[in-house]
Design a protein around this nucleic acid. Structure first.
Length: 571
RNA sequence: CGGGGUGUAGCGCAGUGGGUAGCGCGCAUGGUUUGGGACCAUGAGGUCGGAGGUUCGAAUCCUCUCACCCCGACCA
């Protein structure tokens, strides 16, 4: 490719508000262009990278026996009613009507469609297991697109769906995919962590996310460096230390004027925060919910949502709190009636807690569950933090930020039941097919690679996905000797099958070098009057500082060998 | 949806006591240059996001609206 003909321009500047590194570099390099919020066009360079990532994924998935197919973007809304998931997807579902006023959705994912399809073609366990996948554009009306390609509303995703007749089969499919994902990240030169995850709107039981650890990540990962436990903070468990196991004392009302926060109450009364109970109020699918947790912890809204099996969860507004007659700042489950109360199991770890008295300016001392109050449900709804104890081994947990670059789920049978995907098992009995689903966002992966691999000059693509393997920088293009030598080298490189971007523009050395760096092309070849005098060409790896001169003779095969060696090194 | 912010030339930005719209980059033409974003000259390019209003006169003041960015609740 001749740089002079390339569509898309590099630029020195991007809008000041563009924060994320990948977003800025993708824009500056002319790889993507924004069309609307969370909607991007891929320009030729960006598209080449995307196709390469896609191909790597395709190869690794094919190795596991996955079969690629193509599914519709337009899906009948009725299918989503049948699965019930139009509720959990809620507003992020893009919907439209056709001319006959039939409701359609732009597929945010394709479990419904594929399950219905499998239902038609599979009647026997002999047809299973199946690993079916697609690499397609999906649509989700995200509340807030952000970070360029990191979070968008229209995105290309590889999604694989597994169909098994036994739980063991599902486990095996799941393992295969986990391994395929690890292979993919290795080929992309990305250090990715597999972490336990919540399954969210997709539904299902066991689930793992693949996290690229980087400070710019939007997720928090909790991990234990001692036993290897890793989980998304939404999901992470921890050991809730049992404190203060003294005998129960009688409930006692104390005046605590002006103490609204846990810190204020605790220090006013002279107890540590972990000897208080905190009250938090939520609206869960419209139902007012009173949540109690030990004062030293915070509520994990994901766990709470799962415990309540609700889809919409938000903090209750002040007026909602007032309406049910709760005195904010002095609320407690003691004496509360007619309101659903959910408690974290930490309230059983300890005794003689300080709680509100449901009366302005007063708290109780020595509240004990279940002696002094009742709750509707006690379960783990606490948010894990770095510094807490690991529930597996007892050592201290740590935390890090990460970008979710893959997510796999054991779905089980809820979709196949809803959509009627049943099959005869080996005993001749009809049963729902057991499903799993396995997604990788390709555009996000592209952005994640940049977040992980760049410097102040620009992108540093791994050789495996770089838009071009080499960039031929020809200095002094109006020197006819240089021009013809460059053209000659360019043709030879192409003939050798090397993907080369030939910078034939009439630009100064600085411009060409900076653009080559910005675009992140792994190998740079420089041809100039200076190198020509020595019948040589200069080469430099993007990721390295040193450069060297190579003889012009057989340059194409030399470069081919170098690239081959580099590629092998990465394997 | 809550909070913060921005819309002026292809891109990045200036521009309010209301009066002829500017700078840098880029672009075009000619010339000089060529190892880390060169220089000179000339030139093209804008209904100042949109609608309404105030005014003799609005990028500037008022009202409404749309779009986009950033921070929070959601996800590949």
């Amino acid at each position: 490719m001749r740089f002079s003909k390339l569509f898309g321009k590099t630029s020195r500047q991007t809008p000041a508000e563009v924060e994320s590194i990948s977003h800025r570099l993708l824009l500056r390099a002319g790889m993507i262009a924004q069309t609307a919020s969370g909607i991007y066009s891929y320009l030729p360079l960006g598209w080449r990278v995307l196709k390469k990532i896609e191909q790597i994924i395709r190869e690794e998935i094919n190795k596991t026996g996955g079969q690629e197919l193509m599914l519709p973007v337009l899906q009948p809304f009725q299918l989503w009613q049948q699965s019930g998931r139009y509720i959990s997807f809620g507003e992020s579902l893009f919907t439209l009507k056709d001319r006959k006023e039939h409701d359609l959705v732009l597929g945010p994912t394709h479990e419904e469609v594929i399950t219905e399809l499998v239902h038609r073609y599979v009647q026997s366990y002999r047809d299973l297991p199946l690993l079916l996948y697609q690499i397609q554009t999906k649509f989700r009306d995200e509340p807030r697109p952000r970070g360029g390609l990191l979070r968008v509303r229209e995105f290309i995703m590889k999604d694989l769906y597994s169909f098994d007749i036994t739980e063991d089969g599902l486990d095996e499919s799941y393992k295969k995919m986990a391994q395929a994902y690890k292979n993919i990240y290795t080929r992309l030169d990305l250090p990715v962590l597999m972490v336990e995850a919540d399954s969210g709107a997709i539904g299902g039981k066991e689930s793992h996310e693949f996290m690229l650890i980087t400070d710019s990540g939007e997720d928090e990962v909790i991990y234990c460096s001692s036993c290897g436990y890793t989980a998304n903070a939404e999901k992470a468990q921890f050991a809730k230390a049992k404190i203060n196991t003294e005998d129960m004392l009688p409930l006692e009302e104390v005046s605590t004027p002006g103490t609204k926060t846990i810190e204020e109450v605790a220090s006013f009364i002279g107890v540590p925060a972990n000897q208080t109970l905190k009250a938090v109020f939520y609206s869960a699918d419209g139902e007012f919910t009173f949540v109690v947790i030990r004062g030293d912890m915070e509520v994990n809204e994901t766990k709470l949502r799962n415990a309540l099996k609700c889809s919409e969860l938000r903090l209750a507004t002040d007026s909602e709190v007032n309406e049910v007659g709760i005195v904010a700042g002095f609320a407690s489950p003691v004496g509360i009636k007619g309101i659903r109360v959910i408690a974290d199991d930490s309230i059983t770890q300890g005794s003689n807690f300080v709680v509100g008295a449901n009366k302005m300016g007063y708290h109780f001392r020595n509240a004990n569950y279940p002696r002094d109050f009742r709750v509707d449900l006690t379960t783990d709804i606490a948010l894990a933090h770095a510094g807490y104890d690991c529930s597996k081994c007892g050592n201290k947990l740590s935390s890090a930020r990460g970008i979710e670059v893959g997510h796999i789920f054991k779905l089980g049978t809820f979709l196949s039941e809803k959509l009627g995907a049943i099959s005869l098992n080996s005993e001749g009995i009809l049963q729902p097919i057991i499903m799993g689903c396995y997604g990788i966002g390709i555009g996000r992966l592209l952005a994640a690679i940049i977040e992980q691999s760049h410097d102040d000059k620009g992108i540093i693509w791994p050789l495996s996905v770089a838009p071009y393997q080499a960039c031929l920088c020809s200095l002094c293009m109006d020197n006819s000797v240089v021009a013809s030598a460059s053209e000659d080298v360019y043709q030879k490189l192409k003939r050798e099958g090397i993907e080369v971007l030939y910078d034939n523009r009439n630009e100064s050395a600085g411009v060409k070098f900076n653009d080559a760096d910005l675009l992140g092309i792994p190998l740079r070849l420089t041809l100039s009057p200076r190198t020509l005098k020595k019948q040589s060409i200069e080469i430099k790896w993007r990721a390295e500082k040193e450069f060297q001169l190579l003889p012009l003779d057989n340059i194409a095969s030399t470069v081919k060998t170098l690239l081959g060696k580099k590629a092998n090194l990465l394997k």
